[in-house]
């Protein structure tokens, strides 16, 4: 089994290389460049800038240089944030996004999964409809609306009460500043988890072996927790793999609304600014996370279902 995972890690490297390559050339194919602003830059200055960042080298040369720098762990300088290199920007922003994303993930799992089970076990009863309606609401309300609604309620209307929360800002990670963005991040994930868990739990409870477990006289709680839950969690884990990668790399929308210094905003700002190296940096980071999460998901499958066995080729 471990040789299988060693192989998977090895396959991850060419995957990452392919993503880097595609991303590199797609960025260069995009019209415009990092130094195009509203006011045109004098040609002499532009030429100097391009020479300074080696943008006047042939493209293949730039590509090979970039790969070589990557191998040394150097993501290059940011074109936009002139005094920073990309490694520094990510090192500053990623821990913030990581903390928020991880908190949101834990909250989403702790609320979404039990709520989904609760709904499934009362299938087509009032409690099922109530939970499902809540989940649907969480899915259809976009977070740029939910974020502003939360600010309106907790930042404005409840300003003079004990429930008052800051409308934005990070304040070095003060707890009060985290509540609203983390809640806003987790809400759609709670909703998705409710729906997925509910569906898979209903499916699991129809299995023949659930009937066997009930025929043994096991209390309902044990039938659910010991016999049904593990197979019901397989689709949940499948969803959580990529969802975790997305959550941990931050959300442009939520970080913008709540003015949080994470890396979520770099995805969009970097692309708009043609900040080639910054876009590459955050793309590589999230691609590596997705690859890692898929690997973890596969590991979890084998824990949830003993029929899943990973054999390394001899």
């Amino acid at each position: 089994m471990w040789s299988y995972f060693a192989r998977r890690v090895a396959i991850g490297i060419p995957t990452l290389w392919a993503i880097i390559t595609v991303c590199f050339f797609m960025m260069r194919l995009t019209p415009g460049g990092p130094f195009d602003g509203e006011a045109p830059v004098p040609p002499e200055i532009l030429a100097n800038l391009r020479a300074r960042f080696h943008l006047d080298d042939p493209l293949w040369r730039q590509y090979l240089d970039y790969l070589a720098n990557l191998l040394r762990g150097d993501f290059g300088p940011s074109f936009k944030y002139r005094d920073f290199n990309v490694t520094t920007l990510i090192a500053q922003g990623f821990p913030v996004s990581l903390q928020n994303g991880f908190s949101a993930l834990v909250i989403a799992i702790m609320i979404g999964v039990p709520l989904g089970i609760f709904a499934a076990l009362g299938q087509n009863t009032r409690r099922d409809y109530t939970v499902s309606a809540f989940a649907m609401t969480g899915i259809v309300i976009p977070n740029f609306i939910m974020g502003h609604v939360l600010i309106l309620i907790f930042g404005v209307w409840l300003k003079d009460s004990v429930f008052h929360l800051p409308a934005g800002g990070w304040a070095d990670g003060a707890l009060a500043n985290r509540v609203l963005p983390v809640f806003c991040l987790s809400l759609p994930y709670i909703a998705y988890l409710v729906r997925i868990t509910r569906g898979s739990m209903i499916e699991a409870m129809r299995a023949n072996y659930i009937r066997t477990a009930r025929a043994k006289g096991l209390p309902f709680r044990l039938v659910v927790l010991r016999h049904a839950l593990k197979s019901a969690l397989i689709p949940v884990v499948t969803f959580l793999g990529p969802a975790t990668a997305f959550l941990l790399t931050g959300s442009m929308v939520v970080e913008t609304i709540f003015q949080i210094p994470g890396i979520g905003r770099y995805f969009v700002q970097g692309a708009l600014n043609r900040d080639y190296t910054l876009v590459m940096g955050v793309t590589i980071l999230s691609a590596a996370l997705v690859i890692a999460m898929n690997l973890i998901v596969d590991l979890l499958y084998s824990l949830l279902d003993p029929r899943v066995r990973y054999e390394g080729k001899q």
Partner: peptide, 18 residues
């Protein structure tokens, strides 16, 4: 499971796989 027990038709799916 105590005084009253049942054996089902399909042994392939009637035992909990995990």
């Amino acid at each position: 499971g105590n005084k009253l027990a049942m054996i089902f038709q399909d042994p392939m799916t009637s035992l909990t796989p995990h």
